[in-house]
Amino acid sequence: MEAESKDKIVSIEKPELIAPPDWKPVIMGILCNWCSYAGSDLTGTSRTQYPPNIRIIRVPCSSRVDPWFIIKALQTTADGVLISGCHPGDCHYISGNYYARRRFLVTKELLKMVGFHGHRVQFSWVSAAEGAKFAQVVKKVTDDVVKLGPLHLYKKENFNR
């Protein structure tokens, strides 16, 4: 999903923003009920550990995710957003994850154009059997966002200019 090489637009975000010492990133996770939410439950059942920064919202299908949700999350509370659905071909609702993927790509391009770093919004496929993978995904997203620093500082820098 990271089509970084194709990027013509350079992020204006400054990764060197210095985060306050007590800062902990907030990741908004929106998971589909049948695969990724079940997968995240399996992560719990198998006691696989991951950083506690993600806040999970359950939706029936990744296709329910309105770009508005992503924007709203970045606008208000979250430093990063993770959307996760069923693997291609495995959608409980036949084809919903394909819509989600297309919609997500467009949204991400838009956000990058505005100046967000691509790592702030990520997408993954996690099936109901991939508890360990979910933990890895969360860890990666959290690490990426930690590297980028707090979103509100970035906003301050850019909106006050």
């Binding site: 439950d41 719990g44 059942t45 006691r47 550990q49 950083p51 506690p52 933990a135």
Partner: peptide
């Protein structure tokens, strides 16, 4: 439980 206590067993404050 699945999303907090079981997956952040080493970080009670975080959980």
């Amino acid at each position: 439980r699945e999303h907090s206590s079981w997956v952040h067993q080493k970080d009670k404050k975080g959980a």
